[in-house]
Design a protein around this nucleic acid. Structure first.
Lengths: 137, 137
DNA sequence: GCCTTAGTGAGAACGATTGTCAATCTCGGC
DNA sequence: GCCGAGATTGACAATCGTTCTCACTAAGGC
């Protein structure tokens, strides 16, 4: 496990990382690919998928599934959760030691080991809420 | 909103509900369809998808995405979370008022409204843990 | 500079899900 | 109980995101 996974640094992978970091929201592989193409890059879609998977594996990006799509975002490497606007995608990183503890305790109480957890909060950010009540209903 | 959604009760929908309740783990639509076929039912795959979507919408089933698949499970209608064995799929329903509160507070603190959240814990249940350390490497 | 081999790009392949449409069945009225 | 309108069904095609394949390119060690 944790194989030595030789990983060469290539222009494409760098480009993907940059493109990802340029966005502060979760983006799909497809969207990222389109954006990169639009900027003149010639990367292939498959490469974007591979690069994103590699980044996620290395802990340099967080992945989440939404509406059947895989979304990625460049995140801090420390463990955290997300508060995501379901309208504009704006994302806030959250620390939640209390929730970590709770998850560990609950898992242990039921005899589960190696607990892992998914904790994400979706909502409507202040701006989107205002925009909606403006053009209401 | 919450349209009166006329919903007729049909044999197929009942059958899907029963098949779903017969399993206490999360199952994919495909697996459920296969199981029903194996039991002699003639339901179509599309019908299973539609029935599951309807059940989920009515709050009679919980849906979660895992490994790119949509999984369903018959659950209590009250809001709850899950503790899921990543090996055998055994599922425990959890109540977590504290987490609900936390989610609401965090969302509000960042100006988000209509908070919704995804909180699931994955782990290895006692039996699977034992089985693994038994056949351990 | 040369060689080995991981990485790349284009497109095909794949698998889960959704749409289409004629046939069927439910439900409310008679 | 019978009828008709319209929701639901089942088989299949279509769609869409993701992964695979394979010939080619280029990174990194010598």
């Amino acid at each position: 496990m944790t194989a030595p996974a030789p990983r060469r640094s290539t222009k494409q992978r760098e480009a993907v990382r940059e493109a990802l970091e340029a966005s502060d929201e979760f983006v799909s592989a497809q969207a990222l690919h389109q954006a990169m193409r639009a900027e003149g890059s010639t990367v292939g879609l498959a490469t974007v998928y591979r690069a994103l998977a590699a980044l996620a594996e290395d802990g340099e990006a967080d992945a989440l599934q939404s509406a059947g799509e895989l979304l990625y975002r460049a995140c801090t490497k420390t463990h955290h959760h997300h508060l995501i606007c379901r309208s504009c995608g704006r994302t806030v990183e959250l620390e939640a030691a209390a929730v970590e503890r709770w998850a560990g305790q609950v898992a242990a109480a039921h005899g589960f080991i190696e607990p892992d957890h998914v904790v994400d909060i979706f909502g409507l950010c202040a701006e989107c809420a205002a925009a909606r009540s403006g053009s209401a209903r």
